[in-house]
Each structure stands twice: as C-alpha cells, then as structure tokens.
C-alpha cells in the first residue's frame, strides 16, 4: 500500500516538472536559437575568406567611423547623465503639480526615435528652416548671429552634434528615471542633519547625494554608453554623410553589398561595447571607493 503511494507521488512530481519544462523551454529556445544564428553568421563572415575582421581596419572609412562613434559615446554619455541628474533633482521633491511635470518630462520617450530625427531635420533644414531663420536674425526677438544660412548636415561637427542632441533629447527620461529611483533610496535624515548644521545645497549634493547616488550613476553610465555605441537611427537620418559604426554597417550591407565586411564591423562593435562596459564598471567602482571610502 505504502509503495503504491510513493510511486504515485514520483509520477506526479515528474508530471509537474514536465509541465514546468514544457512551458518554460519554448521561449528560451526561441531566444537561444536567435543567439546561435547571430553568433554563427557574425563569426562565419568575420573569419571567412580574407579575414574581414582584420582587413576591415585597412578601410579608411572604418577607422573614421570608429573614431566618430568613440567621440559620440564619450561626449554623449556624460551629457545624458548630467541632463538626467538635473531632471531628477527638479522633480525629486514633491510640490504642487509635480505629477504633471514628471509626466511632461516623460514625453520624449513616447516619440519614436525616427520621428525625433525627422523633427531635427525639419528644424535644422537648409537653407530655410526655423533654426537658420532664427540665427539669421529674421525674427525680431532674436539677434543676428549667422551672416549666411548654415548647412548643418554638410559639416561633420554640426551633423554629429545634432545626432547627439536628438539622442539626448529622446533618452533623457530613461536617465532621469534611473537617477530618480536612486534618489528615492537615500534617506532624508542625512539631509536634515546636514541642513541643521548649515550645509548649503551644493554641499549637500556633493557630500551626501553624489556618493550615495553612485550605484545609480554607474548604471546610467554603463547603459547609456552601450546605447551610444550602438546608436543607429539618429546618425542615419541626421548625419548620413558622416557615418558612425552603425551607419557604416548599414552602408556596407546595402550599398556595397558586402555582408562579410559588414559582419566584421558588427562584431567589432560588440567587442568595443564589451570593452567599454568593462572599463566603465572598473572606473565607477574606483570612483565609488574614492567617494564613499568603504
């Protein structure tokens, strides 16, 4: 009798586990299959005939794109962090209408990146666009700064900066939300004590907020640096004449019909992202131990 019950329960257990496996496996299998496909083709093409993974460095365009992408990442990431911190500090303490302001600050995330890029192109269009009109002094309320309309998309500096502006504008709510979540974990007692002892806003920020915020800051830095490395849409629409790595990959694939070189580029992009994540993690850890002195 006892044996029978035991047998029954193991069968039930197996059935249970089968059920769990049956409902868990398909989605993981789906994701895993794509991972295999992606890695397979990236390595197959990059290490194929003529070793494109090395020969891609002899292409001048690749080196230029790498350089541009590096600067895009290096300037854009801290910029997004600073904007995120400012936005978060503004809506952190509650005041009348804070809900509305927070919702308004979240608006950019609701605008598709492609549309944001298109708006930038409309605003900065040449020769007649709002920004050109403004800087040419055509409106009575703004001083004349340019003498001739500026072709923003024809200059490397301006077109890449514009792409960065679009990226910062579009993604600032994400940085803000992460910083805000970090701020909310900081206990108020520290501020109150500091305030009683006569600390100014800046001192409170520097000696209390910033050190306690380092986990959130490092998250923003790492996530945003990845996003900036792999940015495609903004440079593709706003700065097509000066390709970043993402745009170069598209061009190699569609215009030059060279999937081997494109995959080599794509693999390098992944490698650079990995290296920069490693570097940022290391750096923020060092900064944190310096600031918090643990």
């Amino acid at each position: 009798m006892l044996k029978k019950i035991k047998k029954y329960s193991t069968w039930e257990k197996l059935k249970d586990n089968l059920f769990i496996i049956g409902i868990t496996v398909p989605s993981f299998l789906y994701l895993f299959a794509f991972l295999v496909i992606v890695l397979f083709y990236l390595f197959k093409f990059s290490f194929g005939e003529g070793l494109p993974i090395l020969s891609v460095f002899s292409e001048g365009e690749f080196r230029k794109a790498l350089f541009r992408t590096f600067w895009f990442m290096l300037v854009g990431t801290p910029l997004q962090l600073v904007v995120g911190i400012i936005l978060a500090l503004l809506v952190y303490e509650s005041f009348k209408g804070v809900g509305l302001v927070r919702s308004l600050f979240l608006v950019p995330i609701a605008i598709p990146a492609l549309v944001t890029a298109v708006i930038l192109n409309l605003l900065f269009s040449y020769p007649f666009g709002h920004i050109n009109d403004l800087f040419l002094g055509k409106h009575f309320f703004f001083p004349k700064i340019f003498t001739a309309p500026l072709n923003f998309s024809g200059s490397e500096f301006f077109s890449i900066s514009l792409a960065m502006l679009g990226k910062v504008w579009r993604d600032m709510p994400i940085a803000m939300l992460i910083i805000l979540a970090g701020l909310q974990t900081i206990e108020k007692e520290g501020y109150e004590a500091a305030q009683i002892m006569g600390a100014s806003f800046w001192q409170r920020f520097k000696y209390i907020t910033l050190p306690l915020l380092t986990p959130a800051i490092s998250t923003v830095l790492i996530l945003r640096s990845i996003e900036n490395w792999k940015e495609f849409i903004f440079p593709f629409i706003v700065a097509p004449a000066y390709p970043l790595l993402g745009v170069l990959i598209e061009r190699l694939y569609h215009v030059e019909q060279n999937p081997q070189l494109a995959c080599a580029c794509a693999l390098w992009l992944v490698i650079f992202i990995g290296a920069s994540v490693f570097l940022f993690t290391f750096l923020t850890k060092a900064v944190r131990t310096y600031l918090v002195k643990v």
Partner: peptide
C-alpha cells in the same frame, strides 16, 4: 540575463538575422 539580451546592438544582430 533576459533583459540584458536587449543590450546586444540591434545593428549587429540584424545582418545575421536577415541573412538567415
């Protein structure tokens, strides 16, 4: 790990997926 799949650059994943 599931969420960090999204950190993989789309532009790097798209060519293998398209080829397949």
């Amino acid at each position: 790990f599931l969420l960090s799949i999204r950190l993989f650059p789309d532009i790097s994943a798209v060519i293998p997926v398209a080829e397949q």
